[in-house]
Computed example of a mutant assay.
Amino acid sequence: MGAIPMRAARPYQSRPGRAAVVVDDLSTLRGPTSGVVELPHRLLWRPDRSIDLSESWQLAAMYEVVLVEAVRVDELRDWLDGATLVRLWGELYLPRGVRRAWEDVHPALRRMQAAA
């Protein structure tokens, strides 16, 4: 399996001391889009890490968590779906650094944000 291009958008941080991680190609994001999933403890620090993807608020919350907590591209690839990310983008509550990092690489997301 080949390496997946990624960017650690440096001055942009997901939180202090952690660079926001961004993929170059949204089509590489092929995470689950239905069912109930359980995020790893490294991403979601609570006992019940189950997410019901049919519940829109849980789906959005999972995307927010993964976008902020991911430190590797494989975490983004494993849990996010490109088309779903585009659809949810304007609704997501994200730190400014995460939003700017992703919108710099994917201008279409900036347009989605402006339209929301």
Rank of each mutant, 00 (worst) to 15 (best):
R7V: 06
R7W: 00
A8E: 15
A8I: 06
A8N: 13
A9G: 02
A9Y: 13
R10E: 14
R10P: 05
R10D: 09
P11F: 15
P11R: 15
P11N: 13
Y12I: 00
Y12L: 03
Y12M: 05
Y12C: 02
Y12E: 02
Q13W: 12
Q13H: 02
Q13K: 06
Q13C: 07
S14M: 09
S14R: 07
S14W: 11
R15A: 01
P16S: 04
P16A: 07
P16D: 09
P16E: 09
P16Y: 13
G17P: 13
G17W: 14
R18I: 07
R18H: 10
R18S: 08
R18Q: 13
R18E: 03
A19V: 07
A19F: 10
A19S: 13
A19M: 05
A20E: 05
A20L: 09
V21H: 05
V21Y: 04
V21G: 00
V22N: 01
V22S: 01
V23M: 05
V23K: 02
V23P: 02
V23C: 10
V23F: 05
V23W: 02
D24T: 14
D24R: 07
D24K: 13
D25Q: 09
D25N: 08
D25M: 01
D25L: 01
D25E: 06
L26I: 07
L26P: 11
L26N: 01
S27D: 10
S27Q: 13
S27T: 15
S27R: 14
T28K: 01
T28Q: 04
T28H: 01
T28E: 07
L29A: 07
L29N: 10
R30I: 11
R30P: 06
G31F: 01
G31H: 05
G31R: 01
G31C: 02
G31S: 00
P32S: 03
T33G: 02
T33H: 00
T33S: 05
S34N: 08
S34H: 06
G35M: 14
G35K: 12
G35F: 14
V36T: 15
V37S: 05
V37R: 08
V37I: 14
V37W: 09
V37A: 00
V37H: 05
V37E: 03
E38I: 14
E38N: 04
L39A: 04
L39S: 11
L39H: 13
L39M: 15
P40Q: 00
P40C: 01
P40W: 02
P40A: 00
H41D: 11
H41K: 06
H41M: 13
H41Q: 10
H41F: 11
H41P: 06
H41W: 12
R42I: 12
L43Y: 03
L43K: 04
L44H: 10
L44R: 12
W45C: 08
W45R: 12
W45T: 09
W45N: 12
W45M: 14
R46I: 11
R46T: 14
P47R: 11
P47H: 03
P47M: 02
P47Q: 05
D48T: 14
D48K: 15
D48P: 08
D48C: 12
R49D: 10
R49I: 09
R49G: 09
S50K: 15
S50G: 03
S50F: 13
I51H: 00
I51E: 04
D52C: 00
D52M: 10
L53N: 05
L53I: 12
L53A: 07
S54L: 14
S54I: 12
S54M: 12
S54R: 14
S54E: 06
S54N: 10
S54A: 12
